[in-house]
Design a binder for these strands. Structure first.
Lengths: 224, 224
DNA sequence: CTTGACACAGAACAAGCGTTCGAGTATTAT
DNA sequence: ATAATACTCGAACGCTTGTTCTGTGTCAAG
């Protein structure tokens, strides 16, 4: 029998256990027992599961209520309950490019992520490829997005008319949020604020759509 | 020994059990055992706890994984995990008064409530008296709040300078969101949008503050 | 008063479950 | 090759926990 041993960090056995605990908790609303973990991960002995659980506890991935049935819980990452954790890729700011979403699936901690309750998510956008950006500066104010707001975007390359998108205007060297409209010979980027005029982009010019805004969250601590 | 028997619905024993399960789950991240429930609710016999649990299951308040340790979970209401459930009292609209928060603590279902992840809540406002309103109409656009947005408010009577408040202007017969400033002889209600002019209210006029906005949530399905 | 539904206690049982120990095998280091 | 380390198994022990059964006191209807 082959054994896979990753020298440092979590082996695939550890990862599988963590994933199982997360999915089990999400579905059954309570943690799994040691034997259930073992069954799912093809571990025939409870002591082996215990062995891995000890390691996961030492490495800080789980917490255990010893002596208590099903007293396992994930610590960081994977939030409990009906929560969507969206990675926060950075700051969007006029004049700066949006940091590229690194395509590796490394887990992100609570520091650089945003939790959104399931029930708040727009129905269609429950895919896992969403990402969040923090808005810096008042330049988006015409899109009713304020400094400090958090926007949640769905990565897209082509927008449909009427969608609010984050675009990179290379000739203006500027990132901005606008409503997108495709017209005959050009693109129209329409601010939400009627007092502002739209931006027109010819179709031969570069227009790089980064993502489509699906949600805006504003924490109002104390403004102005 | 006196026994409290409510003819219909949940007795206070039932309610206490439900509350305990909710708080236990929230703190320990796993459901309580029958004996733990009994200890907390001053029930000396596990059979009595089981007796109540059966009733709560029949009435649809909980679900049970029989034979499985700590296989109790709340069904409706009380969301799992680090979620704040805020009651949605109705719609805020210029020209209409804000519906009064009924002060009884009856539970609210998911239909008329908004879930917010703990991690998103402004640190100070984790009290349980928050409420949510859905914004109708474009009249709040100068406060960067759009039609369809959900605002979460903390009920207050007196605002401090710079806070965004929902106020009822009885002489204008209008509800609106503005930034609040107390000046020498008057109140200044400052829109967030610099192109809009502030509203001045003399101190002898009626100015009814309904609540202070602590969060704005916008689901962007398809705008314009 | 009797009856029966209801609320409760206590004990005992069986299964669930975490823990521990002894032993064996594979991998890596020396 | 040898030792140390990492990993796995199986079984047994004992506490935890859900279940069930018998019995008691209360209260309202017949």
């Amino acid at each position: 029998m082959m054994m896979v041993r990753k020298s440092k960090g979590l082996g695939e056995r550890h990862q599988k256990i963590l994933d199982f605990i997360a999915s089990y908790q999400r579905e059954r609303k309570h943690p799994p027992s040691i034997r259930e973990i073992g069954e799912f991960c093809d571990i025939s002995s409870t002591s082996v599961v215990n062995y891995y659980l000890d390691q996961l506890e030492k490495s800080g991935n789980i917490e255990r209520d010893r002596k208590i049935s099903r007293g396992v819980r994930l610590t960081n990452s994977t939030p409990l309950g009906d929560i969507f954790r969206v990675p926060l890729y950075g700051v969007i700011q006029a004049g700066e490019p949006i940091p590229i979403p690194s395509s590796d699936f490394n887990s992100f901690t609570a520091e650089d992520s945003v939790d959104v309750a399931m029930s708040l998510m727009p129905t269609k956008e429950k895919g896992k490829d969403l990402f969040a950006l923090k808005v810096q500066g008042e330049s988006m104010i015409d899109a009713m997005v304020n400094d400090g707001d958090i926007i949640i975007l769905k990565p897209i390359q082509e927008a449909r008319n009427g969608e609010m998108v984050a675009v990179w205007l290379s000739d203006r060297n500027e990132t901005t949020l606008k409503f997108f409209f495709k017209e005959k010979e050009r693109y129209r980027l329409q601010p939400a604020n009627p007092t502002m005029k739209p931006i027109y982009i010819n179709k031969n010019e570069t227009l790089e759509i980064k993502g489509k805004v699906v949600m805006v969250i504003r924490k109002v601590e104390r403004q102005i």
